[in-house]
Nucleic acid binder design. Structure first.
Lengths: 209, 209
DNA sequence: GCGTCTAGAGTTGTATCCATAATATCTGAA
DNA sequence: TTCAGATATTATGGATACAACTCTAGACGC
């Protein structure tokens, strides 16, 4: 049975896989048709997506949100603050087991630095693990939203030459700070990491245009 | 005409005015009845409120979210990070006019330090003004959500003896840092301010129980 | 008397219908 | 040819009807 949660996921996937691109108008009846459900669950899913700012209003209708240069910069500022806080809290709360898991992740990730898609997923899991270690559910939620916005609306920045190795080195520095329980250093290390990531993205965007 | 936005506001107000308290179950047909609209706009409003974590699921039904001690602490941590960032950015972007407005607000607020309700509203406006000066729309959004959670789910912390004057002195310090364009100091001043505010809240909660 | 199964009421979830608003198109005139 | 006005089509928002699911209470059997 299709349900409201399904409709939400289905639309999310459709946006994710590029069936609907930023700026595209989403027509309820069209979505209902595509996913073989009535307009009701579609409408509710769309509203959810709208409140999460993944969709935007254009007059009366909804379009897939897009991030212009300024918005991307703004998003990165907020993300840096939240991720920095997560690292800081992780340094305070992470158990030895969690630290080991983080180290293991980095070690594993080093074995496929030439597979950007897989690395991107691994990157996501790494950051997620830090979020969880923060022991702050509200923060975890906020970061999930931030990541969703970024994941859907931008392509991966890990395909640049040498960026993979650099990324993992930065990850290493973050985990070391967490292991030392040095929350200040962890905060800073994560912010630095994101700063480089943002820089890389900007370079990609500049080149692609 | 009742509309979906109205339903959202109506439910929000109903929670705000204590008609529905944290933990209360919200029955769609009951709300529809109360507000003289059909279940459709009610449902959409409820979904919005749920994604904003003002409502939580309990099995199949929705209840008004509540903040326990831990959640309140978690919320304050995130709020401090975001408000700190806002102050930091405000120090970078605020125009002289905006700084003057902030100073004016403090001056005005000093004239009614004995009216907690009015002061609470003024406090809200003051912080809002700083948010706007950050020039970061995403951040403004996030902070609006944080404030909504806190405003709905906790009573004001400004009714404590002497806290009003102290609050305004802290506000003064924040604005001075912004005026000096000292973003680091602004960040710190706002975080300190919130730290005291949280401390006050904890004292209230401890006394009330 | 206790446990389980069934029947029923109540609530959420889905589909469809209707009304209204917005937009696009077509026609006519300048 | 272009602009304006009117009309027609289409999409969204709201109401209602219907189905599925859950939880409870009562009855029957062990």
């Amino acid at each position: 049975m299709k349900s409201q949660k399904d409709a939400y996921q289905l639309i999310l996937n459709a946006i994710d896989t590029g069936i609907y691109k930023p700026g595209d108008r989403l027509v309820e009846s069209e979505l209902a048709d595509r996913f073989k459900v009535s307009r009701t669950p579609i409408r509710e899913a769309l509203q959810r997506l709208e409140t999460q700012t993944l969709l935007a209003r254009d007059g009366r209708s909804l379009i897939v949100a897009s991030l212009d240069h300024n918005q991307l910069a703004e998003l990165y500022e907020v993300r840096a603050a939240l991720e920095g806080l997560a690292a800081q809290l992780a340094a305070q709360h992470a158990t030895p087991e969690e630290v080991r898991v983080l180290y293991d992740m980095i070690a594993t990730d080093r074995t496929f630095t030439d597979d950007p898609a897989r690395l991107s997923q691994a990157n996501r899991r790494f950051h997620n693990q830090i979020h969880l270690a923060s022991r702050n559910r509200y923060l975890i939620n906020q970061l999930e939203m931030v990541h969703r916005s970024m994941a859907l609306l931008t392509s991966s920045a890990l395909a640049v030459d040498g960026r993979s190795e650099q990324t993992l080195d930065e990850h290493q520095a973050i985990v070391e700070a967490i292991e030392r329980r040095d929350s200040e250093a962890a905060n800073k290390a994560l912010k630095t990491h994101l700063s480089y990531a943002f820089e890389t993205r900007l370079k990609i965007d500049a080149g692609e245009v």
